[in-house]
Design a protein around this nucleic acid. Structure first.
Length: 510
RNA sequence: GUCCGGGUGGCGAAGUGGCUAACGCGGCGGUCUGCAAAACCGCUACCCGCGGGUUCGAUUCCCGCCCCGGACUCCA
């Protein structure tokens, strides 16, 4: 048993790959990684770019677990609406959730609470569809308002925050290391201040950001010592992270856009409050591009998980060849390194679907062989052990998914190749099972085995079988013209025929 | 304007101061097949954006330039 490799990740704080060493130990003696990953605001369906970030977090958790670590993993849901822009016509900014409610899609909901609930449920559905591990805690901002108010009070008491007619603000100059994470140290360059500012002339420094916003007109509001209003966006994450993971956590992650101001502000709040370092390592996932461009609704390349994985009649995007196997989508989204920009194209998806098939086939062959339990030696153990070790080492090396995936795919290919040469023995099948289970635990791309459930019986099967019988007769009579005519007929039905030594097989064409 | 990343074969994407620049897809050739499909075997970047520099030697380090993307303002 080779020593497990150390886990290295690119730490945004140092801008270089560092060996991650959890500060704490689990009761059973294993290293304990305390990890917080920023989740989305649930004002619409999460898009695949969001999921690239969630997938990165998922791979951290899976890799740490594969290295034998214990992990406590928290990923939040932001279900409080925050402001979109402060330069809109009325100068008041707009609440994202309120805007969503007022939109066409929002007509289906009674109020913002319903809307948030709907999209939270959808988020979790998509999360599971892509085979993401469930966090140990998935806290919601609305369920931690009391803790957030307490944090505001604490910051005011310590002189890091002050109240104005419009809200309570964190005073950035009171926290000298503000800017360390993002490099945005220059106060002059940040004249317009950060979000939720919405033009409050009473702010003492343009960089000061809202901890509490007084707004009796807000669709979600709570009572606080500062009157009715709602908490600032940055506050929820630092408060919930500390509640569930402690004053100092090991690792905090999110999309690259969160580096500033969100994470910078989280650090300021949390450390000003406790006097302790907030997170020891920070990681950020680069943005996903689609067909070489940033995703945006106006470009028509804004894609959700359901756009790609549902059949067109259920809302999938026909122009993107939906439905796609969710695990093929997962495979596509992790096929590039998280710390580099990733360009997703139609080709990426079709490539992923083909690779995904290899795992499905290897899994099926393994199940059959396990059941048959043929006698014979184990011809796979050595190759598969090596492939898995390579995949694990690659993942431990800053989540090098391209290399890990290459090794895993090679292993799956080894299984299929061996099986085709000679049906797998029980011993070989056992090694294959271990390998596939390990790859599933590490990368989540093998799945539970069964691929997408077969399409409903629409009568096609019977029709196809009947035609195949005729074709088999024609072929037996060497009437190739007729055999090919029948194949064309099947082709028109969307069926592809493959002749095998044991008779014809068929499948629906993709 | 300031600050980050990235530019590697037809496409996607690793990687390294010097042995044959992973892997996948595609393409090409072959085996198999009545023909196909599938599968399998083989081939597929004299070269890593451009120009300099450091070095015995750079795709890999440094400088400049060009291009792409991102942050600085809501965004994973």
């Amino acid at each position: 048993m080779p020593a497990t490799p150390p886990l290295r990740l690119t730490n945004t704080l140092s801008r270089s790959a560092e060996t991650v060493e959890p500060a704490a130990t689990a009761p059973d003696g294993r290293p304990l990684l305390r990890f917080y990953s920023c989740g989305p605001t649930v004002y619409s369906y999460a898009h695949i770019g969001n999921f690239r970030t969630f997938l990165t977090a998922d791979l951290v958790v899976r890799t740490a677990a594969a290295l034998g670590w214990a992990v406590r993993y928290v990923s939040n849901v932001t279900d409080v609406g925050h402001l979109t822009e402060d330069d809109v016509a009325d100068g008041a900014g707009e609440d994202k959730m309120a805007r969503a409610l007022a939109s066409k899609e929002g007509e289906a909901f009674e109020n913002v609470w319903d809307l948030a609930r709907h999209y939270t449920t959808a988020l979790v559905e998509d999360w599971h569809a892509l085979n993401l591990l469930e966090p140990d805690v998935r806290p919601r901002a609305t369920e931690h308002v009391r803790e957030q108010i307490e944090a505001v009070e604490g910051l005011v008491e310590r002189g890091h925050a002050y109240e104005t007619d419009d809200g309570v603000y964190f005073h950035v100059p009171s926290f000298p290391s503000y800017g360390a994470l993002s490099g945005n140290r220059d106060a002059e360059g940040l004249v317009e201040g950060t979000r939720e500012v919405v033009r409050d002339d009473a702010k003492r420094d343009p960089r000061d950001f809202a901890l509490w916003k007084k707004d009796p007109g807000h669709l979600m509001q709570w009572f606080s010592p500062y009157g009715w209003g709602f908490p600032g966006w940055h506050l929820e994450c630092s408060v919930m992270a500390q509640k569930y993971l402690g004053e100092t956590i090991d690792l905090h992650g999110g999309g690259e856009d969160l580096r500033f101001p969100h994470h910078e502000c989280e650090i300021a709040q949390a450390e000003a409050l406790t006097g302790e370092p907030f997170s020891r390592y920070w990681m950020h996932t680069r943005f996903l591009q689609v067909e070489g461009e940033k995703m945006s609704k106006s470009k028509g390349n804004f894609l959700t998980v359901r756009d790609l994985t549902l059949a067109p009649e259920d809302g999938g995007r026909e122009d993107w060849d939906a439905p796609l196997d969710p695990l093929a989508l997962r495979l596509a989204l992790v096929s590039g390194h998280y710390a580099k920009p990733f360009n997703l194209t139609r080709k990426t998806l079709s490539d992923a679907a083909k690779n995904r098939q290899r795992y499905v086939d290897a899994d099926a062959a393994t199940r059959d062989a396990l059941e048959a339990d043929r006698p014979g030696g184990d011809v796979l153990a050595d190759a598969l052990d090596a492939a898995y070790a390579e995949a694990l080492a690659a993942m431990a090396d800053d989540l090098n998914t391209p290399v890990a995936l290459a090794a895993a795919l090679r292993g799956a290919g080894d299984i299929l190749k061996a099986h085709r040469a000679e049906p797998l023995s029980g011993a070989s099948a056992h090694s294959a099972r271990t390998f596939l289970d390990n790859v599933e635990a590490l990368l989540g791309i093998v799945g539970a085995g069964a691929p997408a459930p077969p399409a409903e019986d629409d009568g096609l099967a019977g029709q196809v079988e009947a035609l195949l019988v005729q074709r088999t007769e024609a072929r037996a009579a060497k009437d190739w013209a007729r055999a090919d005519a029948i194949r064309d007929e099947l082709d028109a039905l969307g069926v592809e025929v493959m002749d095998t030594p044991s008779g014809p097989e068929w499948k629906r064409k993709a």
